[in-house]
Design a protein around this nucleic acid. Structure first.
Length: 229
DNA sequence: ATACAGAGGTGTTCC
DNA sequence: TGGAACACCTCTGTA
């Protein structure tokens, strides 16, 4: 019996349709749109550093915040060239609706100082030097403020370099529970717990024949009604 | 009116 | 050494 960090929801709360057939038919319906989106992510990975940094900032903003609001905030910041040059004070007004915005404004500035040196971007170079997605994720978690396993994986996936990583957020956890991949949602995620659940997702993904990255967008679209990021 | 859940969590502290 | 507990301290939709 494995030790769990805690329980917020049990299977009983999600009693009802755990039928994988239903998931797979939903996939058939959305497969083309999902794979198109994944191709777009890979395309972003080939764009200039500034655009990759926009994606990184989006991921830094998303915790406990609405993805749409964060996307809008990043676009607004990019339009005024504040991602590469703005102070926290200048960035803050653009983070309306983003939770924990004070800390996140500092994370953006810290990230910028890491990857934009002497007026030169070094982000893409850094990202392309990693051997694989796992190594990249470890580095991001260890070296960046605001990057945990979830957001580091989210960033890598969004630039087309993390398709074998799981992005374990509450939407995904809810779906993993619903489909019997996990039997409880942990209240907190240690590295060990994150990797354990990620391995289960990988197993599930292989078993039903839906790639990890596709599964993430499928679950997420199940919850939000759209294929976003 | 007021309360409360939900939003793609992470950093720090304490033990 | 790793994991709880707490900090962060917003905004919206819903009842």
């Amino acid at each position: 019996v494995r030790k769990e960090a805690g329980v917020v929801t049990t299977l009983e709360d999600w009693r009802g349709n755990r039928d994988v057939d239903r998931l797979m038919s939903a996939y058939e319906g959305r497969k083309n749109a999902i794979q198109k989106r994944l191709r777009e992510f890979r395309e972003i990975g080939r764009r200039p550093d500034a655009e990759i940094f926009e994606e990184m900032c989006f991921c830094l903003l998303t915790p406990q915040s609405k993805a749409r609001v964060c996307d809008k905030a990043v676009r607004s910041l990019a339009a005024e060239d504040l991602l590469a040059n703005g102070s926290t004070e200048e960035i803050l007004p653009h983070l309306e609706g983003v939770r924990f915005r004070n800390g996140k404004a500092r994370w953006i500035v810290a990230a910028r100082e890491q990857f934009f040196k002497d007026g030169q971007w070094v982000l893409k170079k850094r990202v392309e030097e990693f051997q694989d997605a796992l190594e990249a994720r470890e580095w991001l978690v260890a070296n960046m403020l605001g990057m945990g396993y979830k957001e580091a994986g989210h960033f890598l996936r969004n630039i087309g370099k993390g398709e074998e990583l799981a992005i374990l957020d509450r939407h995904i956890m809810k779906n993993l529970l619903r489909h019997g991949v996990i039997d409880m949602v942990p209240t907190s995620l240690s590295k060990r717990e994150y990797l354990r659940i990620e391995a289960l997702v990988k197993e599930f993904s292989g078993r039903i024949g839906i790639p990890m990255a596709d599964l993430d967008l499928l679950f997420w679209s199940n919850e939000t009604g759209e294929i976003f990021k």
